[in-house]
């Protein structure tokens, strides 16, 4: 077991700065997801931790040991690749055993550990098959078993579920969480899928433009985003941002007024679609409904607030028709206030 300290890591590809002084601490046994859109630097950061890529500046410390200049095999970690990288010319057994063989473990120990990892991932019955005979989901299990068989202090995962179909992804996600909880391995998990990050991680580091915009528990980054990007990237539908003017502690939206923090200039009101409730006949924030989409578990309403696009989640039984103007009430404590110029959230009262 080990903690990971990433200390002001910089990575440049030519003149492009892929990582700008990224720092991150992962506690022993913690599961941290690096979440962000493609090109945000999350995979580059993971590869630097693995040692497959060399940083231009900064340090990587694993378990108190500076591994910045060490070869990958000396870092004491295991990795699961996006396309599995399961060796096609070896049986499932030999794939799972690969790390142990490299450590020159005795045959009895190899057998015991391979069988344990295989039963954990439910691949015991395929051990003498070749990967080409397996489905995508089974190959994924082999890749995870290969990583867990060496009982690594640190497990790195690079979009391990992205090649699976939606149903299998959900199934593997649940299983992965259970397996990793049991193993207690410090895990860094790269994904662009917010539901994966929310479901799996103890903490999420949301990355954008080569920086970590915010790091926190799933609930924190969801409910109290640090930037406009984080609010817009997490959640389905994404957070609504309504430009308002704030005067004497009150922001006027149509006929309604909402208390706002003291600030100069333009503010944006960040509102989660499910944090607004319909107030029939009330005098709340006016919302002009343009499209009503029944999603089964809820109604997704798309329309505008004060002429700006917004999406609101309503109970499935609500009576709303397109073209209608409804009133919304909001809990001021659940609102996020964004500085229009910097895109950063204002400190909460």
């Amino acid at each position: 077991m080990a903690d990971i300290v990433i200390d002001r890591v910089v990575k440049e590809f030519g003149s492009f700065r892929a990582l700008q002084e990224v720092s991150l601490t992962v506690r022993d046994g913690e599961f941290v997801a690096l979440l962000g859109p493609s090109g945000c630097g999350k995979t580059t950061l993971l590869r630097i931790i693995a040692g497959l890529e060399k940083q231009n500046a900064g340090r990587v410390v694993i378990g108190g040991r500076d591994v910045s200049d060490l070869a990958p095999r000396r870092r004491g970690l295991a990795m699961v690749f996006q396309n599995y990288a399961v060796f096609p010319h070896m049986t499932v057994f030999e794939n799972v055993a690969f790390g142990l063989r490299m450590q020159k473990a005795p045959q009895a120990e190899v057998k015991r550990k391979v069988e344990r990892a295989a039963s954990l991932l439910h691949i015991d019955s395929y051990l003498d098959r070749y990967p080409a005979k397996l489905s995508g989901g089974q190959r994924q299990r082999v890749a995870v078993a290969r990583a867990l068989a060496v009982e690594p202090a640190v497990l790195l995962m690079d979009e391990p579920l992205s090649n699976l179909d939606a149903l299998l992804r959900l199934e593997m996600r649940t299983e992965l969480k259970a397996v990793l909880r049991e193993a207690g391995t410090t895990t860094i998990y790269v994904t662009h899928d917010q539901t994966e990050a929310m479901g799996l991680a103890d903490r999420i580091a949301v990355m954008y433009g080569g920086k970590i915009d915010q790091i926190g528990t799933p609930l924190e980054v969801y409910a109290t985003p640090a930037t406009r990007f984080v609010g817009g990237f997490l959640g389905s539908p994404p957070m609504n941002f309504i430009k308002v003017r704030c005067a004497q502690g009150m922001a006027r939206i149509g006929e309604a007024a909402v208390p706002c923090p003291p600030a100069d200039g333009e503010l944006e009101l960040g509102l989660r679609g499910e944090d607004a409730s319909l107030d029939p006949g009330g005098s709340g924030i006016p919302f002009d409904v343009r499209v009503v989409e029944p999603m089964g578990s809820h109604l997704l309403l798309t329309g505008s607030i004060d002429g700006q696009l917004a999406r609101i989640v309503a109970p499935p039984t609500a009576h709303v028709t397109a073209g209608e103007r409804v009133a919304l009430t909001v809990d001021p404590s659940r609102l996020t206030w964004i500085d229009g110029a910097t895109g950063r959230a204002l400190a909460r009262a």
Binding site: L52, A71, P72, F81, N83, F87
Partner: peptide, 27 residues
């Protein structure tokens, strides 16, 4: 040969000569 095979072998402890012999050559 996708470079991930060699990278995976490297992560799991294979030295350059072992990677060549056990991964590159068979593939």
């Amino acid at each position: 040969i996708p470079k991930e095979f060699s990278e995976a072998a490297e992560i799991f402890g294979a030295r350059p000569w072992t990677r060549f012999r056990r991964i590159t050559l068979p593939l």
